[in-house]
Design a binder for these strands. Structure first.
Lengths: 191, 191
DNA sequence: CAGGATGTCTAGCGTTGCTAGAGTGCCGTC
DNA sequence: GACGGCACTCTAGCAACGCTAGACATCCTG
């Protein structure tokens, strides 16, 4: 492979990422309804069709943003978990980190978890998402046979709290109180 | 007011509801992305502009469907709660009823809780939604000072379980197990 | 230096939510 | 009972959307 081709591919990869970050920034500042292919193309200073040489369509761009987000979420949760060694506090820290992540990047969080994408099971298909959830699982002892189930329920609760607060359906204050209650009740498990 | 005018208004109210139910049926059979103003107009056998004489726009139609859903959800939960007199079992029954509702009418549930509407705080503005949530609150003893908070967290968890299962992010089987765990852990509260 | 492949752009298609203005028919008044 | 006016509905069209075809330019290869 020639040197030129390598450079081309490198530039292409850069532009690929540029599109993703541009879409994300546009969504974070003006909301996803403002992310149109025209505005996005203008933002990356190319014409519309180049978007389609990188992604199969707009949905694929949103999905790419979401996958980026999964990786960041996993890192964010891992950092929180390792900061506290006590398992009980670790769960608390991870849960708080999850809610912080959702609240500080609402648009990114939407792309990851509420917008209609076909990112399915939190498993092999998207290892970053699997890794993020595993951070919750890891807060329980390895010999806990039901820790997978516990993590699913805690994740669900966190997700519910995040989206219902974001849409104003539950009052945004008292999030800390809700978090305390959730962890207190779900942390000490019978088994 | 003349008799004719009354009849007109009655017919108009009927058509109003016809639009709402048509939108809902279309969404439930083909998904919300298939609900366009043209298809909806064709379905109610009128031209597009009549929709705008009833609703300010498509969003308002979705919101009307959602509000209808809130009322149904409230009735559904109330029925479940009153079937069991034991408070502990009542909470279990209400939670199961909530998940059933979400799973059996996914499109309606989406309009109510995931699509971007400006239905805000679960309070005065939309009494039907408030009534639905109060069914969860009512599962706790009136002298429980924190029952409002408990209900919010349980609602959040139920919502999370519902949407993550619907989008295939957590395996759809074992919903019963998750429900059991949730109720067992959150039902007996310290206070 | 020509030929071909690669890559980008202009232009446009079909569909979307929504609206203006024409047309129609029904009502209440004299 | 004819008529003027009003309420109502429809046809037609706008701007913006996601997406694509085909022309044009640019660069590497033989």
């Amino acid at each position: 492979m020639s040197v030129v081709k390598e450079r081309r591919e490198r530039e292409r990869a850069q532009r690929h990422q540029l599109i993703i970050t541009a879409a994300r920034e546009l969504a974070e500042t003006e909301g996803w309804e403002a992310v149109t292919t025209r505005r996005l193309a203008e933002r990356v200073e190319y014409s519309q069709p180049v978007l389609y040489s990188h992604f199969s369509g707009k949905d694929a761009i949103v999905r790419a943003v979401a996958i980026d987000g999964f990786g960041e979420l996993a890192a964010h949760l891992r950092r929180a978990r390792l900061a506290d060694s006590e398992p009980r506090q670790a769960l608390h820290a991870v849960c708080r980190a999850y809610l912080d992540f959702a609240i500080e990047r609402p648009a990114l969080y939407q792309a990851m978890f509420v917008m209609p994408t076909d990112v399915k099971i939190a498993d092999a298909e998207t290892p970053q998402l699997r890794a993020a959830i595993d951070e919750i699982v890891s807060c329980f002892r390895p010999d806990n046979a039901r820790r997978e189930l516990f993590a699913e329920v805690i994740w669900s609760a966190l997700h519910g709290i995040a989206v219902l607060a974001d849409s104003g359906r539950i009052p945004p204050h008292r999030q800390e109180e809700r978090l305390d209650f959730l962890v207190t009740q779900l942390a000490d498990t019978p088994s």
